[in-house]
Amino acid sequence: MRNTRTLTRRALLGAVAVTAALTLAACGGGSDSSGDAGSDSSASSSASAGNTAGATDGAHNAQDVTFAQGMIPHHRQALEMAALAADRASSAQVKDLASRVEKAQDPEIKTMSGWLTSWGEDVPAASDSAAESMPGMDHSAGSGMPGMMDGSDMDKLDKASGADFDTMFLTMMIEHHKGAVAMATTEKSKGGYEPATSMADDIITAQTAEISEMNKLLGKS
């Protein structure tokens, strides 16, 4: 009788042990499965975030294209004006200003040309900076690119020298800078490509300061 009870008790304990083991295994499997699912979900989320970042990084809009295609010839004309100062200006301050214009704007032309090429857009030809190739370009803010000099202005500057050149150069460059600032302000508010809006901000800061400098050289407040 005692043997029978002992055997029965052992059988029950064994069953309980097996049940417990199975329960723990099931819980463990659920934990692993949950962990894998969480890991997969996290990886998927990271990949998704990475893809989204990649899609928006470097994004540009039509305004960015307009800015680059307009500012390139605008800068080129400023370089043409600055190049004349080396032989024609009498003021060391004017020559220094012209040199700084060249050092700042030539690299910006190269950068903007690179953007347009990478976007599959046309890079303005060098001839597009010539006033005669852009009919209607004048001093008015209503022109396609404000501040651009026309052919007559450039001819006068080319023929001037000494103090007359200094005065003419400063007067024209102030107008030219104001046009660039206006174009950059539009880019800063409507552009979508961060490097372009950043360049626009730099142009506004640098050329606004140069406008003040040139006004002082002209004896204006």
Rank of each mutant, 00 (worst) to 15 (best):
G147C: 08
D155G: 08
P146R: 01
F169K: 05
A163G: 02
S140Q: 08
D166I: 11
G142P: 05
L170S: 07
H177E: 10
S140C: 08
D138Q: 06
M173C: 05
F165G: 10
I174R: 09
G162K: 14
F165T: 13
M173I: 04
H177G: 07
I174C: 06
P135H: 05
M172Q: 11
F169V: 12
H176S: 08
H139D: 12
H176G: 04
S143W: 00
M172K: 04
D150Q: 02
L170E: 06
D155C: 10
D158I: 09
M154S: 05
G142Y: 01
L170Q: 08
G151C: 10
S143F: 00
M134T: 11
M168G: 13
M145V: 12
M149Q: 02
G151K: 09
F169D: 02
S152V: 13
F169A: 07
F169H: 07
M149V: 00
K156E: 12
S143G: 14
A141E: 14
P146W: 01
G151A: 15
S152A: 14
M134Y: 00
D138M: 07
F165V: 14
S161A: 15
H177R: 04
T171N: 12
G142S: 15
A180Q: 03
L170I: 13
M137G: 00
G142L: 07
T171L: 02
L157V: 12
S140N: 07
M172I: 01
G179E: 01
D155Y: 02
H139T: 08
S152Y: 03
G151S: 15
D158K: 15
G179K: 01
S140E: 06
A163T: 15
D158R: 13
T171M: 04
S161N: 12
G136D: 07
A141I: 09
M168P: 03
D153I: 04
M173S: 02
L157Y: 01
D155F: 02
A160E: 03
A160S: 12
M145E: 03
S161M: 09
S140T: 09
L157Q: 04
S133N: 15
E175N: 15
D150I: 05
P146D: 02
A141V: 14
A141G: 10
G151P: 10
M137A: 12
D164I: 12
G136W: 06
M145Y: 01
M137I: 02
M149Y: 00
M145C: 10
H177M: 11
S143C: 07
P135C: 13
G142T: 14
P146I: 01
H176I: 01
H176Y: 03
